[in-house]
Design a protein around this nucleic acid. Sequence first.
DNA 1: TAAATAATTAGACATTTGTCTAAATGTTTA
DNA 2: TAAACATTTAGACAAATGTCTAATTATTTA
Lengths: 84, 84
Amino acid sequence: MNDVFKALNDPARREILKMLRKRDMTAGDIAAKFDMTAPSISHHLDKLKRAGLVTTLKQGQFVLYSINTTIVDDLLQYILTLKK
Amino acid sequence: MNDVFKALNDPARREILKMLRKRDMTAGDIAAKFDMTAPSISHHLDKLKRAGLVTTLKQGQFVLYSINTTIVDDLLQYILTLKK
DNA sequence: TAAATAATTAGACATTTGTCTAAATGTTTA
DNA sequence: TAAACATTTAGACAAATGTCTAATTATTTA
């Protein structure tokens, strides 16, 4: 769960998740939405992936990113435990 | 919401919230549960407070900390928006 | 009122993090 | 097969973060 919170602790990564909620996107699609270099985005995607928040599917030279709602559910459960 | 994620991005702070879920505690009570100096705990409590995740009540020379479930609810709402 | 107690503030320092440029890897197309 | 394209990896560097010790503030008690 620590990796999940680490991953969420960045505005760009939260924005990426918000985008992926609507549709799957390639690394390039995602990078195009930010005023940030491709390597930086790649780094953010790596953190999201290591946290289990996104999954990847290689399609030729493209890499398609999808949100993994299983981990989002785990996170919801965790937050719920903080309620009295 | 950024401050909330920042605040949650630390194991000690998440542990503090878990403890406060059960009962209100003074800064000293909390510090006693960790192998960490009082100033360090004070710093963590400050981050939690700035994020709105805890509230304080001064009682003489003690400061009683409580969890603020309003913000926890806001967080839950945010996480829910990540679901498809 | 002086000493003790609870908590915070200030400042130093090592570690982690986010960003960049340059280079490398893998895939497609002319 | 060479060039172009999509993406990642490597490495540098500044900024943010977590921890500590020392000092300060505020409150209680002997």
